[in-house]
């Protein structure tokens, strides 16, 4: 059982600023249903450019909900330049601490804030040019590096606690160790802090678009042949599906998956998606 601080319990039970700001100036979305937590942050600025109102919607555990609530309370009244300096450590401090395994909830708050600010400034489409290290949770090298530098992490386990990277199949452990080793060697030098940029296409957006494409484009076409396809999971860029109806027994279903479903999803969502069938 997790031990939460009184502040976490208080904000979990009575979260502040739940919902969505009407006509928001900035919107930030991070996480996804498949990862087990997601946060949508919206804010509105006043005439002087200070955050007048901030609201959140969160899917996740107590620490995710408390971190989100804390974040909205912390940013109201601040200019964007001021808000931008808030780190996940500030959120943790505000909450009086988080269990090690839950640190990623505070990181999610920081990421949502940066994403919302970038959205306001019109940087929305500046896609992160960084390779994905953890396929299971879609965590990039850049994100891992930032978490290591900002939180002075030194072990693989800590990296997983803060970013989730390496918490799935474990095949990226070696790469994370390599990144850790490299940064630890450089630790003597002042770490370079580049201005934050918007990371990847939002997972929630991606998920919604995949669902939409399946529902509105792909399934109506498959239905003509008496088949259908069901979305089981989205793991990074892997779209895991299950075939139903005539498709389930069709010898050509593998071709349909790769040539039709995958191409359609790549065309309408993002060109890095890979469709895989889950056999049942």
């Amino acid at each position: 059982m997790w031990v939460y601080t009184e502040k976490v319990k208080e904000l979990f039970n009575n979260p502040k600023n739940v919902g969505e700001v009407v006509e928001p100036d900035g919107v930030g979305e991070v996480g996804s249903l498949s990862c087990g937590d997601a946060l949508r942050l919206t804010f509105k600025l006043d005439a002087e450019g200070r955050i007048d109102e901030a609201k959140f919607q969160t899917f996740g555990c107590a620490s995710a909900i408390a971190s989100s609530s804390a974040l909205t309370e912390m940013i109201v009244g601040k200019t964007l330049d001021e808000a931008e300096t808030i780190t996940n450590q500030d959120i943790v401090e505000y909450l009086g601490g988080l269990p090690d395994k839950k640190m990623h909830c505070s990181v999610m708050g920081q990421e949502a804030l940066r994403s919302a600010i970038a959205n306001y400034r019109g940087h929305k489409l500046a896609k992160e040019e960084s390779e994905i290290v953890c396929e299971c949770f879609g965590v990039t090298e850049k994100e891992i590096e930032e978490a290591i530098l900002h939180n002075k992490l030194s072990t693989l386990e800590q990296v997983t606690d803060y970013t989730k990277a390496g918490g799935g199949c474990g095949s990226c452990h070696e790469r994370i160790e390599t990144i850790l080793d490299r940064l630890l060697v450089q630790a003597g030098a002042e770490p370079q802090r580049e201005p934050p940029t918007q990371t990847r296409l939002s997972n929630i957006q991606k998920m919604k678009r995949i669902e939409q494409t399946l529902e509105q484009e792909i399934n109506p076409t498959l239905a003509k042949d008496g088949g259908s396809i069901e979305l089981i999971d989205i793991v990074g860029d892997r779209v895991l599906v299950s075939l139903k109806g005539a498709c389930a027994t069709c010898a050509a279903s593998g071709v349909t998956l790769k040539h039709y479903v995958e191409n359609k999803l790549r065309e309408l969502v993002t060109d890095t998606l890979v469709v895989e069938e889950i056999t049942q």
């Binding site: 249903l33 949770f137 999971d233």
Partner: peptide, 26 residues
């Protein structure tokens, strides 16, 4: 069977093996 309760980050291997969609597994 949620991931968050175990600290493993992955939801229950049983529900995943059954193909329970992620909207429900967590």
């Amino acid at each position: 069977g949620s991931a968050c309760t175990s600290g493993s980050l992955e939801p229950s291997h049983v529900l995943r093996a059954m193909g329970v969609p992620f909207t429900a597994a967590h």
